[in-house]
């Protein structure tokens, strides 16, 4: 693996007295695509919220690009280039597509903003066509693209996508995973936190399987796909 971008060691987190995550160790290398797979309630969202700083870790460390970030505010973590695209339609419905995108880039200068916007429009031509339209009028799939585009506006080193394929039609899911590979080809590392096992394992290099708040399996995507334990862990059989 190349240089380590995100390194999580012995992480535990939860809400109040109930611990949702424990003994989490995870690594994402620069430019890598890594998948975290798990069924509903396995702790995927809690993991995302903890990495992005919305939820405080109770134990363990999170290092990003050489900095300890487990005590930092979400805004600081975003400024470091770790961008979290939250689950399902987390856009600003009454703002236009362009305004939505610009909000992803306000930490950078105007010149950056325009360059980033051009780059995002090149990846998502449909967003360019509708740049003056209100985000709330977009379809679910388009809103998902917009949320990812907004994440790209911040010039991320690592993009965490939370259930990006949730609620999308099979055709759109295909399109989405093709886009994920395009984004990755531009040098952005991605952490996909997904229920969609098959497609995820096709694009990811390595994968972790989350069950009951801890990783029960991890390794190369190809090995995970072949592992009989995957079905058991994932489907809870």
């Amino acid at each position: 693996m190349s240089e380590v971008l995100l390194a999580i060691n012995g992480l535990a987190a939860g809400y109040g007295a109930s611990e949702v995550l424990r003994d989490i160790d995870l690594e994402v290398g620069a430019g890598e695509i890594v998948a975290v797979l798990g069924s509903n309630g396995a702790g995927k969202s809690t993991l995302n919220r903890t990495i992005s700083g919305v939820l405080r870790a109770t134990r363990g460390s999170i290092r990003f690009a050489g900095h300890a970030i487990e005590r930092e505010k979400p805004a600081k973590i975003v400024a470091r280039g770790l961008i979290h695209v939250p689950e399902a339609r987390c856009v600003f419905p009454n703002l236009t597509i362009e305004e939505n995108l610009d909000l992803g880039s306000y930490r950078r200068g105007r010149a950056h903003r325009e360059r980033n916007r051009a780059r995002v429009f090149a990846i998502f031509p449909r967003l360019a066509e509708r740049r003056a339209q209100r985000a709330g009028t977009l379809s679910g799939g388009e809103q998902q693209m917009l949320a990812i585009g907004r994440g790209l506006m911040a010039e991320p080193q690592l993009l965490i996508l939370d259930e990006p394929s949730l609620g999308l039609s099979p055709r759109l899911v295909e399109e989405l995973f093709a886009l994920i590979q395009r984004i990755n080809a531009a040098g952005v590392a991605l952490l996909l936190v997904e229920q969609n096992v098959v497609q995820c394992l096709e694009v990811a290099r390595r994968a972790y399987v989350l069950e009951g708040g801890t990783f029960v399996l991890h390794g190369n995507a190809a090995d995970i796909r072949a592992d009989p334990n995957l079905k058991r862990a994932y489907l809870g059989l």
Partner: peptide, 15 residues
């Protein structure tokens, strides 16, 4: 952004 969607605002790095 905070008015429209506070969670999304946090995600784009708004304090």
């Amino acid at each position: 952004a905070v008015r429209e969607n506070e969670e999304a605002a946090k995600a784009v790095g708004v304090n």
